[in-house]
Simulated scan of single mutants.
Amino acid sequence: MKKAKMQKRLFVLLAVTPAFGGYLLFTLYPNLLSAYYSLLDWNGISKPDFVGLDNFVKLFQDRYVWRALSHNLFYMLTIPPLVIGISLLLAYLLHNKGYKGTPLFKVLFFFPNVLSTVVVALLWAFVYDGSFGLLNSLLRLLGVPIGDFYWLGDMRTAIWAIIPPYVWAGVGFYIIIFINAMATIPKSLYESAILEGAGHMKRMFMITIPLIMPIVRISALFLVLGSLKGFEQQLILTNGGPAGSTDVIGLYMFNLAFGAEFHNYGYASAIGMFLFVILVGAKLLTDKLIPNRQIEY
């Protein structure tokens, strides 16, 4: 009996060690190292100087940090609701309408998730191109005198132009997630609602969404955190321009650490610590706004 317990513990230890070791090596250790770097004035090459909390004082006085963070908040308030709303609607239609081509639609909607972020950004850069872009060509077909307007080169439109690539790339994944969640709902609930005269909208908001709310909540959390820390598409599409109108805090931090002009690892690490606090706060706020209420049937 004692030997069996020892073998079980050894098996659990061997099974957990690779994952836990990877977490320590690639997550915990870099984060602790970043916390240490945030206390230094260091360009990554020369001897570092310990400056204590000076980087954090500089951070709170840096207007570019707050400008970038305001853009993050803008994307946080627009991208997650759009992705969740469109995904829920399309998932409900595909699951409850019983279209013959539902498997094909699933593949088509999921296709952007197969592409890398770089490919998605380059595709949308072509869409927004002023001379040969698909968007301007479509507007010209509709009779709109758009000329050679560069959507990513104008401060009024660039910040809005970042949203469609994120939505297009994210909707397909959450459609699949929501369809699988909806498949667990008993059909008898819908049948009873139909007998009582409930339409599609009422069934969706009174049955479907409440019963899959834990899945919606987790999806919203991932999207909120992603909109706060993501910067890859901004980097490829605009690199924060024009005139910083699409800069986000992750991109600002990246350019400080690895950009040609700065190489300030210490200050970039301080911004990373600040972003970590923001992400924790966003998680707690999401938990408060979307409580985890399990509804049983």
Rank of each mutant, 00 (worst) to 15 (best):
K97L: 13
K97N: 11
G98H: 08
K100M: 00
G101Q: 03
G101M: 06
G101Y: 05
P103Q: 05
F105P: 00
F105Y: 15
F105R: 00
K106N: 06
K106W: 03
V107L: 15
V107K: 12
L108F: 14
L108T: 08
F110V: 04
F111R: 05
P112N: 05
P112C: 03
L115H: 12
S116T: 15
S116G: 15
S116R: 08
T117N: 06
V118F: 02
V118I: 15
V119G: 02
V120M: 03
A121C: 09
L122K: 08
L122H: 09
L123S: 05
L123D: 01
W124Y: 08
A125N: 12
A125D: 09
F126I: 06
V127H: 00
V127I: 11
Y128E: 02
Y128P: 02
Y128S: 03
D129L: 03
G130S: 10
G130W: 00
F132L: 14
F132C: 00
L134T: 10
L134P: 00
L134K: 03
L135D: 01
N136Y: 04
S137A: 12
S137N: 05
L138M: 13
L138Y: 13
L138S: 11
L139E: 11
L139K: 02
L139V: 01
R140V: 08
R140N: 13
L141H: 11
L141Q: 15
L141E: 11
G143S: 12
V144C: 09
V144P: 11
V144D: 04
P145W: 13
I146Q: 02
G147Y: 13
G147A: 12
D148C: 00
D148T: 01
D148P: 10
F149H: 07
L152Y: 10
L152E: 04
G153Q: 02
D154K: 04
T157V: 13
T157G: 09
A158D: 03
I159D: 07
W160Q: 08
W160G: 07
A161C: 05
I163H: 08
P164D: 08
Y166I: 09
Y166C: 06
Y166L: 06
V167P: 13
W168Q: 03
W168E: 02
A169V: 01
A169I: 00
G172R: 01
G172N: 02
F173V: 12
F173P: 06
Y174V: 05
Y174W: 13
I175Q: 07
I176K: 01
F178P: 02
F178L: 14
N180G: 14
A181F: 07
A181D: 04
A183T: 13
A183S: 14
A183Q: 15
A183N: 10
T184R: 12
T184P: 04
T184G: 04
I185T: 13
I185K: 07
K187L: 10
S188L: 04
S188R: 02
L189E: 13
Y190G: 12
E191P: 06
L195K: 10
E196M: 07
E196R: 14
G197S: 09
G197K: 00
G199M: 08
G199A: 12
G199S: 14
G199Y: 03
H200A: 15
H200Q: 13
K202H: 15
K202Q: 15
M204W: 09
M204P: 01
F205N: 07
I207T: 02
I207V: 06
I207R: 14
T208E: 11
P210H: 11
L211R: 11
P214C: 04
P214Q: 04
P214N: 10
